[in-house]
């Protein structure tokens, strides 16, 4: 599960953001909606432990992020949080499968080659396992990024604007894929977006 309590963030410039409390149960899908500049991205970073809140706390799978520090937080993030960014980035020097293996290793898990191949097969990019990430099409890269986000069976999946560049048909496919994969590992899925098309698909919404 994913929850926040009285979360604020202090920008270095002086402006302060206050966020509404969130409480998303395990297995649920939520939309985080807001216009540009509303602080969506900042909230995503706070939820992922990529930024430190000014006050309040973020709870992921019963763990208060603020209580973790340094490499413990990094490892926790690797294990419990799957993050899909708007643009997919990979370690370019190693293959798609090795990127997933790296994700397992860095999260402190054992490398499971069978699971990696299975997951890539499920996402219809099994034949790209040994390809360099740069050799994949944009759509394939997005699938590979989804595979990497869920490889460690995280309790929370955060997706940042996954559909902003897609047409309606592909938007549906990607959202279905995300929900399907989140359900497969029983994770909370939080989609951060300004794309109002998604409000017709996903009921549970948080507005900033």
């Amino acid at each position: 599960m994913l929850a926040t309590r009285a979360l604020t963030y202090q920008y270095p410039g002086g402006e302060q953001l206050t966020f509404p409390d969130i409480s998303c149960a395990r297995g649920e899908t939520w939309l985080l909606l807001g216009d540009s500049g509303s602080g969506k991205t900042t909230l995503l970073q706070l939820l992922a432990g990529l930024r430190t809140p000014g006050s309040g706390e973020v709870v992921v799978d019963n763990q208060v992020l603020g209580q973790l520090s340094g490499s413990d937080l990094d490892r926790f993030r690797g294990k419990q949080l799957g993050i899909i960014f708007q643009t997919a980035h990979f370690v370019r020097s190693v293959s798609v499968a090795e990127n997933l293996a790296l994700a397992q290793r860095l999260a402190g898990n054992a490398v499971d080659h069978d699971r990696i191949q299975q997951l890539l097969d499920q996402l219809s990019i099994g034949n790209k396992a040994d390809a360099a990430p740069a050799a994949l099409s944009v759509g394939q890269q997005q699938r590979a990024a989804i595979a990497r986000a869920i490889i460690n069976q995280p309790s929370v999946i955060l997706a940042d604007e996954p559909t902003s560049a897609l047409d309606d048909a592909n938007t549906h496919r990607v959202i279905d894929l995300l929900r399907e994969q989140a359900a497969a590992v029983n994770a909370t899925l939080l989609i951060v977006t300004h794309d109002n098309r998604l409000t017709r698909i996903i009921d549970q919404q948080i507005r900033l």
């Binding site: 990529l50 990094d74 690797g78 790296l102 860095l106």
Partner: peptide, 18 residues
Amino acid sequence: DRRYELAMLRVMGSGRGG
């Protein structure tokens, strides 16, 4: 060139030391 992948390594669980 590699700032994204370095950041990705952090997201995947690598500490600063890594």
